[in-house]
Design a protein around this nucleic acid. Structure first.
Length: 774
RNA sequence: GGACCGGUAGCUCAACUGGUUAGAGCACACGGCUUACAUCCGUGAGGUUGGGAGUUCGAGUCUCCCCUGGUCCACCA
């Protein structure tokens, strides 16, 4: 089917244009930034400039990674944040939207290291200090680009208060929190099985890892029973190379097949070690062969069993994922995958490999780089967050903090309930250094952890090494003056590791306000709404609640609004590797910021994943254009009014707006009803309904009916033209206010046009700070 | 293995604590440049709300079962 060719408008008959006035037929969204500058210059983004006795409305905005460009998904969050901010600002509440940037430790370090490598610069040659300096500069430069995008979507943040997670003022607060945790014994160094990303070369917390389906093998290996000829216990494993670190074979105590072996020893193939057969009820009889090889150093369940049975721990994989010196010499230096093949070959040669099955199973991968996680035993800094988590749960139970949508309350609580110690040390350079000094060095301290109750003298005796200090640690971000407070030793070794990024961003709602002693803190804490996406509920929201309550005694916000995820047009997650990323710039140019925002409010609803659709953006652009043209009609009609007539019109509009809530005029009454509904929707975070009602009412009532009626009225009774337009412009002005939080640019533009014509003189200069109709 | 969320018009989704005839945008059909707007206007078609049972005066909404997508958590070797 062919579409009819569109006819060009003549620009004459249909324009209704009056001589001497020239208003384009289509709204030009490329001028949106001029409007933004108008707002910025007014100073109204800064709550200090708003004189009001009302309680402030505060949102600390999620800081995007400082190192990169932002995609369409980020714009979504800003839109919701800005909408809430504008609404409350118009209600006369001193409104603070506090923006900033996150140093995003592990991710930025990876990105910047790669960036350096592309220029032929090696991170290790550069050295830590120089790396830090250059990375800092890199972030600050990139942040400028991100900020422009934030402004482009209309974000009315107080840029004078903008923060970076590595700002000195924030560092101070972040370290104070660490010291408090340390003094209360909640921060400690311990040896546990941890997730090691061999690509990023750092330890990760559980939440930094993800599960992925991968093809693998299931190998059945025969362990000869010591002293019994031709008798074997067969174990099944997906990781044959870890057998080199086995320190036991475990069976279920009720398993009749293996009962007779419990207490005996088996030979560990390919090594000269013998390991015991133990009984543990955690072993599942029906899984594999029912006999489980125990590698405490490389499996979480084995680690637990190992501790209970006081097994030796043999770590055979190093931080880079290579077989280390604890493995037989032949395998040392091999990657785990190579070692796996070699071990299988050698077992086969020895006649100890029963069979190998191909299977698909879940493995852990790094949340950032998606490479396979090695579980290794290691000493790291941990935070015991159990008590903090309990308080966070209390805040949810008491309703001090609520999630939108509600069901995330339960999701969050379940996570908090099962929480484990939080590994906060990362083997990185980019971030806050863990503020710890070791008297006598890290090696001594780590030895003391392995040998509880022992002293530095015991260390000397046991290892033959000289202890260079008393073995104490001191928490301080600067080298303690006067050395170790206990033994006065001046030679202190500093911790090299950095803190997990989320340890600092988890303090964002109060670190940005100067901490519990800050001036801003007194004015603005606790904040009101945290607007973000559900994918960082555990990473971030949970940590903010725990650390916020811990430091301040108050939950950092009363509402967590979790908007939906924006997907690519093909319905999949946007990612560079898939090549389906939509650049905000493209959308801004095609449809304008207002259209994009309106689409978010209708479609990116809590709990939903929404693919970006051009038809929908087009529809919203059309709505924006409709607003433009409604005002265009009015501007034309009043263009030939005399000065006296304009004054009369303005006066009448002013009176009508002032008496809106009590007006008996049908149009004004209906419009006020809409205002009440929109207010209700905004208070309940039902943005989609608000936008729908705005669109419905503006388009199908104001435009389709009332403008048409006005045309007739004016034609039939020209003597009533001022009254007719006063009604019309009054309802238009109210609608501009009601639409402004959603589509700020077009509404402000129309407002300015009316003001420039001498109307709305009793109202604020800027729509942005005009009074919300209520 | 545990938990959670969906399944409503061709598509993407609405419908607040159960309450008129289940809505919108886009797409579709037909007709229109009517003096703001063709990024528009008018008219129209399109739904047994995944299936089944139950509670109720009344169910898309509450309960149970089934089918079917999706997400998160978890130490299945």
């Amino acid at each position: 089917m062919q579409k009819k060719p569109k006819k060009e408008s003549t620009g004459k008959a249909g324009d209704g244009a009056k001589p001497g006035i020239d208003i384009p037929k289509a709204y030009d969204s490329s001028k949106e930034m001029e409007i933004y500058k108008l707002w910025e210059r007014s100073g109204a983004f800064n709550p200090d400039n708003i004189k009001s006795k009302k309680k402030p409305f505060v949102m600390t905005l999620p800081p995007p990674n400082a190192n990169g460009k932002q995609h369409v998904g980020h714009m979504c969050g800003y839109s919701f944040q800005d909408c809430m901010g504008r609404y409350h600002r118009m209600k006369g509440e001193p409104t603070l939207l506090l923006a900033g940037k996150d140093h995003a430790g592990i991710q930025t370090e990876a990105v910047f290291t790669k960036y350096l490598a592309e220029q032929g610069i090696d991170k290790w040659e550069l050295g830590r200090d120089e790396f830090y300096k250059r990375c800092y500069k890199f972030c600050i430069e990139n942040a400028d680009y991100a900020r422009e995008q934030e402004k482009r979507i209309g974000l009315s943040a107080d840029w004078s208060r903008e923060k970076f997670t590595l700002d000195p003022a924030l560092n101070k607060v972040i370290y104070e929190t660490f010291y408090k945790l340390f003094d209360e014994g909640l921060v400690y160094r311990g040896q546990y099985i941890i997730n090691q990303c061999t690509n990023c070369r750092t330890a990760l917390a559980n939440v930094d890892t993800e599960h992925e389906q991968k093809k693998g093998i299931f190998a059945y290996i025969k362990y000869p029973v010591v002293g019994e000829k031709d008798t074997y216990i067969t174990v099944a494993t997906t990781r044959p190379e870890t057998m080199l670190g086995d320190t036991a074979v475990a069976v279920n105590p009720k398993d009749s097949r293996y009962k007779k072996f419990v207490g005996k020893m088996v030979e560990l193939p390919l090594t000269d070690r013998q390991i015991p057969v133990i009984a543990d009820r955690k072993v599942d009889k029906d899984l594999g062969t029912g006999a489980l090889k125990i590698t405490p150093a490389h499996s979480a369940i084995d680690f637990e069993i190992g501790i209970e049975h006081e097994l030796k721990i043999v770590n055979v994989i190093d931080e880079e994922g290579l077989m280390n010196e604890n493995a037989p010499e032949k395998y040392q230096g091999m990657k785990t995958s190579e070692a796996s093949k070699a071990v299988l070959e050698d077992l086969d040669k020895a006649g100890l490999l029963e069979k190998v099955e191909d299977i698909t199973h879940e493995i852990l991968v790094c949340e950032r780089c998606r490479s396979v996680i090695e579980q290794i035993i290691s000493k790291q800094w941990f935070v015991n967050v159990e008590s903090l988590a309990k308080n966070a749960i209390k805040a949810i139970d008491s309703g001090e903090t609520t999630n939108v949508p509600k069901y995330f309350n339960r999701v969050l609580k379940n996570w908090l309930k099962d929480i484990r110690p939080w590994c906060i040390s990362r083997q990185l350079w980019w971030g806050h250094r863990i503020p710890i000094w070791y008297c006598g060095g890290k090696e001594l301290y780590d030895w003391l952890i392995d040998n509880p109750g022992k002293t530095a003298e015991d260390y000397e005796k046991a290892t033959g090494n000289k202890a260079k200090g008393c073995g104490q640690v001191i928490a301080s971000d600067e080298k303690p003056k006067g050395g170790c407070p206990k033994c006065k030793n001046a030679e202190l070794e500093s911790e090299e590791d950095c803190m997990d990024t989320w340890f600092s961003s988890g303090q964002w709602p109060f670190s940005t306000l100067g901490g519990p002693d800050g001036e801003d803190y007194k004015k603005f804490y606790p904040t009101d709404v945290m607007e973000t996406m559900h994918d960082i509920l555990f990473f971030w929201v949970a940590r903010m609640m725990m650390l916020g309550i811990y430091r301040t005694g108050k939950a950092p916000f009363h509402t967590v609004y979790l908007h939906g995820m924006i997907l690519a047009p093909d319905g999949r997650k946007m990612s560079k590797s898939k090549g389906n990323v939509v650049e905000p710039k493209e959308i801004f140019e095609k449809y304008g910021a207002d259209a994009l925002r309106l689409w978010y409010f209708s479609d990116a609803l809590p709990g939903k994943n929404t693919p970006i659709r051009h038809e929908k953006l087009q529809g919203n652009r059309n709505f924006v254009n409709k607003i433009w043209n409604a005002s265009r009609y009015i501007m034309f009609q009043i263009s030939d009014f005399s000065d006296e007539e304009i004054q009369e019109l303005d006066k009448s509009i002013g009176e009508r707006l002032a008496g809106l809530s009590k007006s008996k005029d049908k149009w004004e009454k209906e419009t006020f009803n809409v205002a009440e509904k929109i207010t209700k929707y905004l208070d309940k975070y039902q943005f989609n309904l608000a936008v729908e009602l705005n669109r419905e009412f503006f388009w199908h009532k104001l435009c389709d009916e009332w403008i048409e009626e006005t045309k007739n009225l004016v034609a039939n009774k020209p003597e009533n033209k001022i009254e007719s337009f006063a009604r019309l412009i009054t309802v238009l002005a109210v609608m501009l206010k009601l639409i402004h939080p959603f589509a700020p640019f077009i509404t402000e533009q129309v407002w300015q046009n009316l003001r420039n014509r001498g109307l709305l003189s009793g109202e604020s200069e800027l729509l942005m700070i005009s009074d919300w109709p209520e």
